[in-house]
Design a protein around this nucleic acid. Structure first.
Length: 470
RNA sequence: GCCCCCAUCGUCUAGUGGCCUAGGACACCACCCUUUCAAGGUGGCGGCACGGGUUCGAAUCCCGUUGGGGGUGCCA
């Protein structure tokens, strides 16, 4: 692979952020459509928040959204912690070149001096003190005078006044490298040509660009994409918001729907049609077309996308997609009562009624439950008047007499029973039968359900329900 | 506080000086269809933050204001 080299560099935190997923997807689309490479680098240098299993979580999440480690465009994962020596070596080089210097002031020292002098930030106090490395000495980058212009593919030219950028820390007092340094050195080592990341990194960019230059390299192409925000228009946070990709997967959001939705947050496929196959989006995606303002991660719209994708599946695909929920320990009904044939046959009436896969099983759970729970309020309402009770009893009798147990005949039988009890519109009289059979007032078409439920079970449930009426 | 970014319906967006009476999607409302609920169909509501310029002409260019967001660690 000789094309451009992109990278995705998450820090392991135990879950995969939806914002990170979008960034990964955009990098992935770019790498693939440009014949380039997507480098995965796990930024695990902060021992505080890092566990080996987190990494697998990242790889699994990426695979779910279609970023596969066995794709020729994929490279990695690399672990930042393995490159500490190189980070330190680069810092050493900057020191030797005179682009960095040691400082023995602690954070408290800096704060105290600023308070005394009415200043803010680090004022380059140790620039000319000629300090060498030593315990507690941090290495700081000597920010040159002038301005730094960042060329950004989505923002354009952004100019920073270097005098407003403090001499930032490269190496901690204990000698370990800081993120800014590690990040730059790794990008250089991995020959990254395009850094596509969230906007929150834009203020870091002049610092990183100065390091690239000091280290004798041409900086990469930068692209800072807008952040994803919540309803209050604040950056999505794991404390407040539902940001874990895994949670959406577990609730039955389809990967294709999630991917499609994420892609359109800040970018619109050509032609203005939002629902697009991955291949099309991959081919069309351009950083130059990315929007500049933060995008609200809208659960309602995600749900709409998901419903759309669910409805477009064939019954067989739908069954397979539901399989994990059918086999789950907390499945809504016991596996041995499940009937694939029935589920397949009912799929077309289930799909338009479900927003998520998890929800889909709930639509037909009554078909596979030995004794579906009857909602008390629904039952009370469905049998509140004598005519409703009458419908229940006469339809029960009418069903018993049906010769051919089919939806059509059941419907005809029911309509007669309803009319006999004074209902001009049979639809209005469905409630008692529906509640008796399904436990609820709403659900898939009743007579088709009865057909599949079978004569014996239908009549049994009607008799049981009838018996509960005084 | 300081620095940076941003600003089209409630939301995601189309729009790159005349094609804009500002288009689509989600949400919402109404109607149709109908076997409940959905789905589907039709229609509706609703927006260029404000003020100055530039121009024959501005949602589009410039300046300012206001508003929002991000960043300001010996976190990543």
């Amino acid at each position: 692979m000789t094309g451009p080299r992109f990278r995705f560099a998450p820090s392991p935190t135990g879950f995969f952020h939806v914002g990170g997923a979008r960034t990964a997807l955009w990098n992935w689309a770019l790498a693939r459509s440009m014949g380039g490479t997507f480098v995965l680098r796990i930024e695990d240098t902060d021992a505080e928040r890092n566990r080996p299993e987190w990494t697998q979580g990242i790889i699994d999440a990426l695979a779910w959204i279609g970023v596969h480690t066995d794709d020729p465009h994929f490279e990695g994962p690399y672990f930042q912690s393995n490159y500490a020596e190189q980070h330190v070596a680069a810092a050493q080089r900057l020191f030797e070149q005179g682009d960095a210097y040691y400082c023995d002031m602690t954070g408290a020292d800096v704060e105290a001096r600023n308070k005394a002098e009415g200043n803010q930030g680090y004022q380059g106090w140790s620039r000319n003190r000629g300090l060498g490395p030593g315990p507690g000495h941090v290495l700081r980058f000597k920010v040159p005078a002038g301005t730094t212009v960042v060329h950004d593919l989505v923002r354009g030219e952004v100019t920073f006044d270097n005098s407003l950028i403090e001499d930032f820390v490269l190496l901690r007092g204990n000698g370990t490298p800081m993120f800014l340094l590690a990040n730059v050195v790794d990008d250089m080592t991995m020959s990254i040509s395009h850094v596509v990341r969230a906007e929150e990194h834009l203020p870091n960019t002049p610092k990183q660009q100065m390091m690239w230059e000091a280290l004798g390299h041409e900086p990469p192409v930068w692209a800072h994409v807008p952040v994803l925000v919540n309803e209050a228009r604040k950056k999505l946070s794991k404390r407040r918001d539902k940001v874990a990709l895994e949670m959406y997967r577990d609730e039955g959001y389809l990967a294709d729907a999630m991917v499609n939705y994420l892609m359109t947050l800040g970018w619109m496929p050509k032609g203005g049609e939002e629902i697009q196959p991955w291949a099309q989006m991959e081919a069309d995606f351009r950083l130059e077309d990315v929007n500049h303002s933060p995008a609200f991660f809208d659960l309602k719209k995600l749900a709409a996308f998901n419903g759309d994708y669910i409805r477009s599946m064939s019954p067989a695909e739908f069954l397979e997609a539901c399989r994990p929920w059918l086999l789950a320990a907390d499945a809504p009904f016991p596996a041995d009562r499940f009937d694939e044939e029935v589920f397949l046959a009912m799929a077309p009436v289930i799909q338009p009624r479900a927003t998520t896969l998890a929800e889909a099983l709930g639509v037909v759970d009554f078909m596979f439950l030995a004794e579906p729970a009857i909602d008390a309020d629904a039952w009370a309402k469905a049998t509140a008047t004598p005519d409703l009770v009458g419908v229940l009893r006469s339809s029960s009798a009418a069903f018993e007499a049906v010769a051919d147990w089919s939806a059509d005949e059941l419907k005809a039988a029911f309509e007669q029973a309803a009319e006999a009890n004074g209902f001009a519109k049979p639809g209005k009289a469905q409630a008692p039968v529906r509640v008796a059979i399904t436990g609820r007032t709403v659900g898939p078409p009743l007579f088709e359900s009865l057909e599949f439920l079978g004569r014996d079970e239908t009549l049994r449930r009607l008799r049981n329900a009838d018996a509960t009426i005084g």
